[in-house]
Design a protein around this nucleic acid. Structure first.
Lengths: 352, 352
DNA sequence: CTAAGGACCCAAAACGTTTTGCACAACCCT
DNA sequence: AGGGTTGTGCAAAACGTTTTGGGTCCTTAG
């Protein structure tokens, strides 16, 4: 009676999956032998092996990875932390990491922080129980270096896309050549005759953001560039340019260098809302070369970042060590970028 | 001597993390007590608990999730299978799933199949060792139902976005209302006075694709619609329209209904290459409302699909059962869609 | 006929937790 | 004073593998 109630109590349950013991019993061998048959770790008489294999197939036995992980002390899973998987750039990067992982039989666990430090912390907390064998960190926001450093003692971490100040001498870093990208835009705008440009940067605590602007100044020269700080989103680009137009108007600049394509889009919108035409009145350049950049009107001049390669390289580098159970030596991988000249930049025109 | 060699042999290794035994020893209690302090599963004298907590902090102890998983028989991780994380739609969906998972303390392991059945199989194979507690399946291509069915016995699966023919009566299904979306477009075009439309569908073995067209016919009527089959990519839209223009020209249609925004973009390109203007000469409507749709020229009339909500609902539904260790009953969740009238459709104009 | 060696398989330990039954002490109530 | 209750902590089992040091039996050579 009581027993029947108990069985009723839980709703329909999944039947217990076959364990190695079940297989062993059915094949009249020890669990050890089953393990050896499956792993090929030690020779087993063909006749016995065949018997085991039959039972395995019949029972649909698959070794429980939880148990295997415990025994092995590793999980064949790496973490991937990104701020926004919805952002084309990070999606490409994620794909690269996934490909690299998949090649070596690793899985990827996705952590989407939405630029929220608390959320990032919660993810890192969850990850620290060495659930993962390693991690690709592409935070995209000023990272809580402390927490990251403490994790570095538990498993290897590869930094992707963004330098983390305290850590770059200790681990793998893969990033696009932001500085060179900035230089390319700087040179391009200068060649078009621009002499006064509004540079709208990303968050100044992001090294990549600084590098882009620094590269720009290297090529363009410091004179004539007024710099304002923003965030890597469209509204920020809009607001920054709108504000700039109010204070002083466009007499102050003939071109806008946005640290990011989305911001560039915002900038264009602000300019058009103010009755200015792009690129006739003001040129606008972006950074990243997201898909939109080539479809939007006017098509955006920008710097192409090899997002996929960044992810793939970071994943491959990380795993090349993790896989051999070594801790990776510090290394840097700077990937080349390309200038994409399209329709949003034009030779400067004398103000009417 | 030998020992020294051994220590040299492996490269610098990570030191063994503290285990619960280490904590117990240092706090002069049993591992049981440590566990109780940490889990709150049973009361522990405050004095003792404090001592344990101190040691935990000092040693930086974190329970090994591998061991915990084994003991618990679950991992607090769910799988997410998508064909292309780079596709905005699936990225949004993934974000939804991740959010739902994160709310309940679950992790998400990402499987990006790149529309490759082999790759999908390899992923499913890797997942079947009940590494995960459940899975959201959004294959986007005609799925290998057999393998999926066999997995359904091991952990719950929620189908997102796309019906899997053999399984829809057995598990959770979350999808946008493709049929209603088709109806909205059909009605819209009819109201604009269109009477002959070219419908370019996605792969006919995808239920969502069929539904969109079916809904369209419901509202528009069967008469006057010629249907051609394609794939969900831009080139396909281009090719289909280009071909249609060759055979019979645009006398045969005044509007194009593309089963997907990307195809709509291709269609527009083909029309413009043929010297036709959109929407003046031919109207074009899409489906999905990807980010591009609102930025491209002309801005695309389309049906907005709540990708994020699909993911979030699928994740939440799945987890609401998984989390209580129940197997989910079959259920369907059809999410509403919205018509977005923009600039690519216009009232029909009498052919000149 | 016996010792050595090989082929084959198994028992037991280990991985690091959580769970549960129990022991011990101290307290309360009648 | 004795029986019950509470509070506190421990030992042992269990989760499902893989690993490793034998053990048994058979073959072969001396």
């Amino acid at each position: 009676m009581t027993r029947e109630q108990d069985e009723d109590a839980g709703r329909r349950r999944v039947r217990r999956p076959a364990s190695i013991k079940d297989v062993a019993a059915a094949a009249r061998v020890s669990p050890t032998t089953v393990s050896h048959v499956l792993s090929g770790n030690r020779p087993v008489a063909e006749e016995t092996a065949e018997r085991v294999r039959t039972v395995v197939a019949r029972l649909g036995y698959v070794p429980a990875s939880t148990a295997r992980n415990l025994q092995a002390g590793s999980t064949s899973v790496i973490g991937l932390l990104v701020p926004d998987i919805t952002n084309q750039f990070f999606a490409e990067l994620a794909k690269g990491v996934d490909d690299a992982a998949h090649d070596l039989g690793y899985g990827v666990i996705l952590c989407n922080t939405e630029f929220d430090p608390d959320r990032e912390d919660r993810y890192l907390e969850m990850l620290r129980g060495r659930f993962i064998d390693g991690m690709v960190y592409a935070s995209g926001s000023p990272p809580s270096r402390g927490r990251l450093a403490s994790l570095l003692g538990r498993f290897p971490i590869a930094l992707a896309d963004e330098v983390v100040p305290g850590l770059l001498e200790q681990t793998i870093l893969v990033t696009a050549d932001h500085r060179a990208g900035g230089r390319l835009i700087g040179q391009h705008l200068r060649e078009l005759g621009h002499r006064r440009v509004l540079a709208i940067s990303g968050p100044v605590d992001l090294v990549s953001s600084l590098e882009r602007i620094a590269g720009f100044r290297e090529a363009f020269g410091d004179a004539g560039v007024t710099e304002v700080e923003g965030a890597f989103v469209e509204q920020s680009g809009y607001a920054l340019v709108a504000t700039a137009l109010e204070n002083g108007g466009r007499r102050r600049f003939t071109a806008v260098f946005a640290a990011n394509d989305l911001m560039a889009l915002g900038a264009i919108a602000a300019l058009e809302d103010a009755g200015l035409r792009v690129p006739d009145d003001v040129s606008v350049a972006g950074f990243d070369d997201i898909m939109l950049a080539s479809r939007v009107h006017p098509r955006l001049t920008t710097v192409h970042q090899p997002a996929y390669d960044v992810g793939r390289t970071a994943g491959a580098q990380l795993l090349s060590y993790v896989h051999r159970d070594e801790v990776p030596p510090a290394s840097r991988h700077i990937l080349p970028v390309r200038l994409k000249v399209r329709a949003s930049t034009a030779p400067v025109r004398p103000a009417r």
